[in-house]
Design a binder for these strands. Structure first.
Length: 396
DNA sequence: TCTGGGGTCCTAGGACCC
DNA sequence: TCTGGGGTCCTAGGACCC
């Protein structure tokens, strides 16, 4: 009974269900959470909306055409994070062996619960019941011998269900699935596999490892060879530390001109600074990301001598990086700014000159106000538009 | 139809050190 | 004078996931 001790718990259309908690009139309706603008994309769709063909990652304009009644709600990530913390508290009340994959899904290794439950399936049902009764949220659970099978099982269980894949049935379950359902197979790998005539996972299993390695490279090839046999040595690792923090924005209209880009970077630097400070982190590597209208991406990064979390320091680094790119001459569709090589903020850092200390105090105060009232509550005068600028209406 | 925002991991080349 | 191999760090790009 305990040969399948891995649970994958996946919340059903999580963002939409959180919006329904806060506004029950949305229940039963065709609802989606996503960017409402001309370049917006659906992040989460209710099952009612999915019946019309609405899908996540779809352009909002496409979704509206398929489902004219669709209610599109702009994302509120802070709120989803709050509810996610409660969801993970429920997980950890069952076992400390919880490995989060995102805000709304996690692996649980429940092999330690033999004394308390009859089977892993009973644990899975208990988790689902707790999420439903305590938080009012539906979830689906996959129960299997290893992680990737549990994840595939929860996918099959959706919505609001549980699927148990027994060890003796797992190869039959696995081999019937399309090759694209394997974890790590995206468009590029799928195209390479198609050239080999592979359609199902069973076809992957019948390929010699050398053939797979020749087609998709050694790392992915060996990985696929293992997965197709139901082999997955990865254990559930609790609490993986965050490795990078970033903010980015796709603009409704492309940015044109260095000055416009620099103003946008200042706003990014402030948001990033707030995110880092709230997380108690400092970044030693700063990365600038630019997407041009033809969707080509360029990144430039720089590693500093000491880790930073202040908006001015991040802004200065971003300006330096922007010099290495063709912004200003070329229109810019998206700008992103990120921090990597993260360190805990309690690591002592050397302060260079007197007024830096004062500036740090100012930035701390700003970060605090932002935490209370949102990222856009406080900023330099440069970011104010004419209408908001005090006294601007009095100007001649 | 027209393609978001937030992440992780891998690769490959070059710098630098031993 | 010409040469080795290994290890680590940094940078840029790309595949992939939710």
């Amino acid at each position: 009974v305990w040969t399948e001790p891995i649970l994958h718990v996946d919340m059903d259309s999580f963002f939409v269900e959180v919006e329904r908690l806060d506004d029950p009139t949305l229940t039963g309706k065709t609802v989606a959470v996503g960017g409402p603008g001309p370049r917006g994309v659906i992040a989460s769709a209710s099952y009612e909306a999915r019946r019309f063909g609405v899908r996540s990652a779809q352009a909002t304009s496409t979704a509206r055409r398929m489902c004219p009644e669709l209610v599109v709600i702009p994302p509120r990530h802070e709120r989803y994070s709050e509810i996610s913390a409660r969801v993970f508290s429920v997980f950890r009340s069952f076992t400390p062996l919880v490995e989060g994959l995102s805000l709304d899904e996690a692996f649980l290794d429940v092999s330690g619960l033999r004394k308390h439950y009859e089977s892993p399936v009973e644990v899975g049902e208990a988790v689902r019941t707790r999420l439903r009764t305590d938080l009012g949220l539906p979830a689906s659970v996959g129960v299997a011998s290893v992680k990737f099978l549990a994840k595939l099982a929860s996918e099959v269980a959706k919505p609001d269900g549980l699927r148990h894949v027994r060890k003796e049935d797992q190869l039959a379950f696995l081999h019937a699935l399309p090759a694209s359902s394997l974890w790590g197979v995206g468009p590029a790998t799928l195209a390479a596999l198609s050239r080999l005539g592979v359609e199902r996972v069973g076809d992957v299993a019948s390929m010699p490892e050398t053939t797979l390695v020749a087609a998709v490279g050694p790392t992915v090839g060996r990985h696929l060879h293992d997965l197709a046999r139901g082999h997955d040595p990865r254990v559930v690792v609790p609490d993986i530390d965050v490795k990078s923090v970033s903010v980015e924005e796709t603009y409704d209209q492309d940015l044109l001109g260095r000055e416009v880009v620099e103003t946008a970077l200042l706003a990014h630097a402030q948001r990033l600074s707030g995110r880092l400070r709230r997380a108690g982190l400092r970044a030693r590597t700063v990365t600038l990301k630019v997407k041009y209208p033809d969707f080509t991406l360029a990144t430039r990064s720089h590693t500093l001598a000491a880790a930073v979390d202040g908006s001015r320091q991040l802004y200065q680094a971003a300006l330096e990086l922007a010099r290495g790119l063709d912004v200003g001459a070329q229109p810019v569709r998206l700008l992103g700014l990120g921090g990597g090589s993260l360190e805990p903020a309690d690591t002592p850092t050397q302060l260079e000159i007197g007024h830096e200390v004062e500036w740090d105090k100012v930035e701390d105060a700003v970060a605090e106000v932002r935490q209370k009232f949102g990222d856009r509550a406080v900023g330099p005068a440069r970011l104010l538009t004419g209408r908001e600028h005090p006294g601007s209406s009095q100007e001649p």
